Computed example of a mutant assay.
Amino acid sequence: MNLFVIIKSLLAGLPNTVLILVISFLLSSIIGLLVMWISLQDDRVSRGVARLYTGLSRGTPPLLMLLLSYYELPKLLQFVGINAQDWSKNLFAIFGLAVGFGGYMGEVFRAAFESVDQSQFEAAYAVGMQRKDVLKEIILPQVFQIALPNIQNMFLDFLKASSLVYVIGISDMYRNATNLANVHQGVFQLQIFIVLGLIYWLITIFFEYLFKLYIKKNTYI
């Protein structure tokens, strides 16, 4: 099989791969920040909820989260009068990945928060700043900078996990590779998946480069 045909077929699924990767990662980051905030509350109930979700998130395989999102979430929504039968499969893939990795992101942000010198709160309060302003202007920027290396690692984990969305019928690069191999009865399967692996590797290098550029220009701690 012509190499150009293989590359063209696989790259046809690249837009879906990137779309699901970026949106699910951003949503998971928001969930992670929320989990961090809940885990830092004074009451035991809030901390218990955060620990429970984090444990479930980290202990459940991403593939299972995707399947639960695609097959069971519409049934749950049906109970509250929402018909999700015609929703895009991408939405369920994004939700499944985001919820599945939210616990990991929460731990990333929590560890970074605990690395920040907490005496900065007292110093800020002494000059009349409110807690929300201290968090917004002083603490959270530092949390983000400290967490950047781990955020990069999580993003690359998302990239690899995004290949699982083929199980719910999304035409991403992995599904296109599988379909192409099946069409040719597995004759060119090795070549197809070698090319797929190289494409994922190049995408990884590209995003690593972007992260390094950002860290070089913006890290000030």
Score class of each variant (00 low, 15 high):
residue 178 T to P: 08
residue 190 L to C: 07
residue 72 E to T: 15
residue 124 A to D: 03
residue 43 D to M: 08
residue 178 T to D: 13
residue 103 G to I: 05
residue 201 W to A: 05
residue 27 L to V: 15
residue 40 L to D: 15
residue 78 Q to T: 11
residue 66 L to E: 03
residue 7 I to R: 03
residue 185 Q to C: 12
residue 96 G to A: 07
residue 98 A to D: 03
residue 101 F to S: 14
residue 29 S to I: 15
residue 63 L to R: 09
residue 41 Q to R: 15
residue 11 L to N: 09
residue 90 N to W: 13
residue 46 S to V: 09
residue 147 A to E: 10
residue 142 Q to C: 11
residue 48 G to I: 05
residue 36 M to G: 04
residue 61 P to D: 12
residue 71 Y to C: 01
residue 119 S to K: 13
residue 88 S to P: 09
residue 211 F to C: 09
residue 123 A to I: 09
residue 83 N to G: 06
residue 59 G to V: 07
residue 142 Q to H: 04
residue 30 I to A: 14
residue 219 T to I: 12
residue 167 V to C: 05
residue 158 F to V: 10
residue 213 L to H: 07
residue 45 V to N: 06
residue 218 N to L: 12
residue 164 L to A: 03
residue 31 I to H: 08
residue 53 Y to D: 01
residue 87 W to L: 08
residue 4 F to D: 14
residue 31 I to A: 11
residue 103 G to E: 02
residue 77 L to W: 03
residue 179 N to S: 10
residue 36 M to Q: 06
residue 5 V to M: 09
residue 9 S to M: 10
residue 153 N to L: 08
residue 188 F to W: 14
residue 156 L to T: 04
residue 50 A to T: 00
residue 151 I to W: 06
residue 83 N to T: 08
residue 16 N to C: 08
residue 74 P to M: 00
residue 54 T to N: 00
residue 113 F to V: 07
residue 1 M to S: 08
residue 217 K to E: 14
residue 148 L to V: 06
residue 51 R to Q: 11
residue 13 G to A: 02
residue 166 Y to E: 04
residue 195 V to S: 02
residue 200 Y to W: 03
residue 5 V to D: 14
residue 49 V to F: 15
residue 149 P to H: 06
residue 205 I to T: 09
residue 98 A to L: 02
residue 86 D to C: 08
residue 110 R to C: 03
residue 38 I to Q: 01
residue 78 Q to A: 14
residue 159 L to P: 02
residue 18 V to L: 07
residue 128 G to D: 07
residue 21 L to V: 01
residue 162 S to R: 01
residue 20 I to A: 00
residue 84 A to R: 00
residue 71 Y to D: 01
residue 215 I to A: 15
residue 167 V to M: 06
residue 4 F to W: 12
residue 124 A to H: 08
residue 173 M to G: 00
residue 96 G to C: 07
residue 92 F to W: 10
residue 15 P to G: 00
residue 82 I to C: 14
residue 137 E to Q: 13
residue 181 A to G: 09
residue 135 L to K: 08
residue 184 H to L: 11
residue 75 K to C: 07
residue 65 M to N: 10
residue 38 I to D: 07
residue 106 G to A: 01
residue 87 W to N: 08
residue 36 M to F: 10
residue 169 G to K: 04
residue 133 D to A: 14
residue 207 F to L: 02
residue 167 V to F: 07
residue 201 W to P: 01
residue 151 I to N: 03
residue 79 F to M: 12
residue 107 E to A: 06
residue 124 A to V: 08
residue 81 G to F: 13
residue 3 L to M: 11
residue 192 I to V: 08
residue 34 L to Q: 05
residue 99 V to A: 11
residue 180 L to D: 02
residue 23 I to Q: 02
residue 2 N to D: 15
residue 131 R to V: 14
residue 56 L to P: 02
residue 211 F to G: 10
residue 136 K to C: 13
residue 144 F to R: 06
residue 31 I to K: 07
residue 35 V to N: 04
residue 10 L to I: 11
